[in-house]
């Protein structure tokens, strides 16, 4: 057992922390699966992004936070969010540049039911997933940081 896990005063009990640590990876993996298979199975960028954000929020709730490192985390969340929406717009404009119209499906459609198929749809799904995950984690950290600042 790691030392810093037992010594930190913030957050919940050791049981919650251990379970959250084990489960967070699986939840995130499930979210990534939902995003990556968005064009094959139910789900997609929005659902998978929210699940990925859920894994971060689980860790955040279990381990607690201080006002100092929440600024850095908020910066990363904001970066993810901005990169996601930027990627989506770039893909949309690439259709205008290389294709005929805005949001044109510029990539090859591939074989149906394969992971790499359907042209820009998986790319857009990944972009939306990154954006939604960053957005929700960012909102959550922002609200939590307000609480920390008020307590101080």
């Amino acid at each position: 057992m790691q030392n810093n896990t037992q010594n930190t005063s913030s957050g919940m009990s050791l049981i919650v922390k251990t379970v959250a640590r084990i489960l967070a990876g699986m939840i995130m993996l499930y979210g990534i699966y939902i995003v990556a298979h968005g064009h094959l199975t139910p789900g997609g960028g929005f659902a998978g992004g929210v699940i990925i954000a859920g894994s971060f929020i689980l860790l955040y709730l279990a381990y607690g936070a201080t006002a100092a490192d929440s600024d850095k985390r908020k910066w990363y969340a904001s970066l993810c969010e901005s990169l996601g929406i930027f990627g989506f717009w770039i893909v949309a404009i690439l259709g205008l540049v290389f294709g005929t119209y805005f949001l044109f499906n510029i990539f090859a459609k591939g074989t149906p039911f394969h992971l790499f198929s359907a042209g820009i749809i998986p790319v857009c799904n990944v972009a939306i997933g990154v954006e939604v995950a960053g957005a929700l984690v960012g909102i959550f950290i922002t609200f939590a940081a307000v609480k920390l600042l008020e307590r101080k």
């Binding site: 968005g38 064009h39 949001l103 459609k109 149906p112 954006e131 939604v132």
Partner: peptide, 27 residues
């Protein structure tokens, strides 16, 4: 579209403008 999930085909190909606007609103 080549997408096996018809919902993905609609929201990211036929109606991709809506999804783009929605993602921008969230941002």
């Amino acid at each position: 579209t080549g997408a096996a999930n018809l919902v993905a085909a609609v929201i990211l190909d036929f109606r991709a403008y809506d999804t783009l606007g929605e993602a921008t609103v969230l941002f």
